[in-house]
């Protein structure tokens, strides 16, 4: 089994891109476009507006966490679309409905990502999703983790996938 550092960047890029595209087109009928970063490995993500961040981990041959960042307005749009309700109806349901929907979108995205890793010889299992909300926080990995950051454009809104991985079992 190859080590994480031996896996070319292009594989991670292709794997997460396929996952994001598949989830957003299947569940929300929204095509996603990969947007290359000017600086591929930023130290951290600086947030300018209130964000909803979904996170799901995977454990096994590779241990990792993937964070999906999106601003609150886009998260609400995604949640309403996924549930088949209007944004007004969603507002009545409150933040919990948005959190649950973004948690599920993240779960599907990370699931699709890690299923591709499993099929490449890195079997892993998913953990349950959790949600972060706010505008004044940043996630910093421990030094042993490999970090990759990818951005996507979905109908004019940006989402960011932040991948943190380290060798597992």
């Amino acid at each position: 089994m190859p080590a994480i550092k031996d896996i070319p960047d292009a594989v991670f890029e292709e794997t997460i891109t396929r996952a994001v595209k598949e989830v957003f087109s299947t569940m929300l009928s929204q095509p996603a476009r990969y947007v290359p970063l000017d600086h591929p490995e930023p130290e951290s993500l600086e947030l300018e507006h209130p964000h909803v961040v979904g996170t799901v981990g995977f454990i096994g041959a590779i241990n990792g966490l993937i964070y999906l960042y999106m601003d609150v307005a886009f998260a609400q749009k995604c949640a309403a679309n996924l549930l088949g309700i209007s944004e007004e109806e969603l507002a009545e349901l409150g933040d919990e409905a948005v959190n649950d929907a973004i948690g599920e979108l993240t779960n599907m995205t990370v699931g699709t990502f890690k299923n591709q890793l499993s099929d490449r010889g890195f079997p892993c299992r998913l953990t349950i999703p959790s949600i972060l909300r706010g505008s004044r926080f940043r996630i910093e990995p421990i030094s042993s983790a490999t970090r990759r950051i990818y951005r996507f454009d979905i109908a004019g809104s940006g989402i960011t996938a932040d991948l943190l991985m380290q060798p597992g079992e």
């Binding site: 779960n107 599907m108 990370v110 699931g111 699709t112 890690k114 299923n115 499993s118 099929d119 079997p123 892993c124 299992r125 998913l126």
Partner: peptide, 9 residues
């Protein structure tokens, strides 16, 4: 009905 879709699983 699951996101767990690796062949082994």
């Amino acid at each position: 009905l699951t996101a767990e879709g690796g062949k082994d699983n």
